[in-house]
């Protein structure tokens, strides 16, 4: 019985891996081979596509740009969300429920709606085409998410912890940094994971807010596809490389991913 049961996840994983395999397969082929013949694995194995990406600054700068705004956004989102989530989990205050709901509605705003106004807003304050602009823009949906996840984790920490610390003479900031943050590191990890994820995969806003200097890797890919013809091998190699940062992050938080959303309140 149990053997048969595992067939479903196994088949599902196979289905997930097929397109990824095909992308990696393409990335090791020459353009001629891709367009000329059909084979399940590369006949003339080549690393040229990867070599181009690692030596051409327009390519590897794309990765640096993407990673810099994603990391910046993760740091901003989590550090802003921490005190707010604490307030929502510990105190009742005027308008708290409405505020929480308003924050969540921003998660429901289609990025397409905000593309043009964001372009004008960040141009007018002189941040257009910088990683800071993208990092701040992504806060629109990542801060609500981070508050939501962290609030769930904090609600699971008993209030007695706070009260004992205050009785022991800890000031609030000291308590928060020395005692509270270490207790919810798992929650911080999960929140950071989801911020990283949604900032890394988003393209519409990132593309709208950059032109040359801060162009993300994903935008470099779309432009290359249209200007230099049909370099599918190069495109596939660039795509395959974008999977790696995500895979590394998943490995670190694999024990906690599933808990992240489960603990948040709706």
């Amino acid at each position: 019985m149990s053997r048969i049961k595992y067939l479903a996840p196994a088949l599902y994983i196979l289905f997930l891996l097929l397109p990824i395999y095909w992308l990696v397969n393409m990335s090791f082929k020459t353009t001629n081979e891709i367009l000329g013949s059909f084979s399940l694995w590369p006949a003339e194995f080549t690393l040229d596509n990867y070599r181009t990406i690692f030596t051409d600054p327009t390519w590897y700068n794309g990765y640096i740009n993407s990673l810099s705004y994603v990391l910046l956004n993760t740091v901003i989102s989590v550090s802003f969300a921490l005190p707010a989530a604490y307030a929502f989990s510990r105190y009742r205050f005027l308008g708290d429920k409405h505020l929480f709901f308003w924050l969540l509605t921003n998660r429901m705003a289609p990025p397409a709606v905000f593309a043009l106004p964001f372009f004008q807003l960040y141009s007018s304050i002189g941040l257009f085409d910088t990683p800071v602009a993208v990092a701040l823009a992504h806060c629109l949906f990542n801060i609500p998410l981070a508050v939501w996840i962290l609030e769930g984790f904090m609600a699971g920490v008993p209030r007695e912890l706070d009260e004992t610390a205050f009785i022991d003479g800890y000031s609030f900031p000291k308590f928060f940094v020395r005692i509270f943050i270490p207790t919810i590191t798992a929650g911080i990890g999960v929140a950071a994971f989801f911020c990283f994820m949604f900032s890394w995969v988003e393209l519409l806003l990132a593309k709208t807010l950059t032109s040359v200097a801060a162009k993300p890797i994903a935008a470099t890919m779309t432009r290359t596809a249209s200007t230099s013809g049909y370099e599918l091998g190069l495109l596939a190699a660039a795509g395959a490389l974008t999977i790696i940062p995500g895979a590394i992050v998943i490995w670190f938080v694999r024990h906690h991913i599933a808990r992240g959303f489960a603990l948040g309140r709706v």
């Binding site: 994983i13 997930l16 994820m197 995969v201 999977i243 995500g246």
Partner: peptide, 16 residues
Amino acid sequence: VCLVLMALPLLIPWNV
């Protein structure tokens, strides 16, 4: 193994 492999598609940029 399941969790890591299953989470993989979630972390690929949408245009990729």
